[in-house]
Amino acid sequence: MSDKEPIIVAFVCNWCTFTAADLAGTSRLVYPQNVRLIRMMCTGMVDPKYVIKALLQGADAVLISGCHPGDCHYINGNYKARRRVKLLKEILPRFGFDERRLKLTWIGASEGNEFAEIIKEMVAEVKTLGPSPVKEQMVL
């Protein structure tokens, strides 16, 4: 992959979206290699600082993806994740981050197809945004 390819850091929950990614793989679905999956037990444990760190470290976009509302293995972690995404979308764009660089989706364990589709769409969108402005900065 060339240096110009965008990198997407994806925080995915063990029970739904990671399982969906696994299903996409075992079903031999093809999706872009730009995504770096980080398996969390639940999206409810994605602290805002993980997202901030990924973006400041040069990720072109961050995806948080968990179980559909009502399906969370830990009952309500995904609702908490949604509030944190709301918060980050209020803060980060003030400093020039395009809000499309942070995405929240719900992908259930059986939705391998959806996972592949969302990654394809997101990579295409991030490519239109160009590289993250962070890469030019000397401050982390």
């Binding site: 400041l56 918060l87 400093f95």
Partner: peptide, 19 residues
């Protein structure tokens, strides 16, 4: 980057505290 400001994590710290 060829150059980074030390100490690091300055912007990271303030953005995290804001969040």
């Amino acid at each position: 980057k060829g150059i980074i400001k030390m100490p690091t994590d300055t912007v990271f710290y303030h953005l995290t505290r804001l969040a």
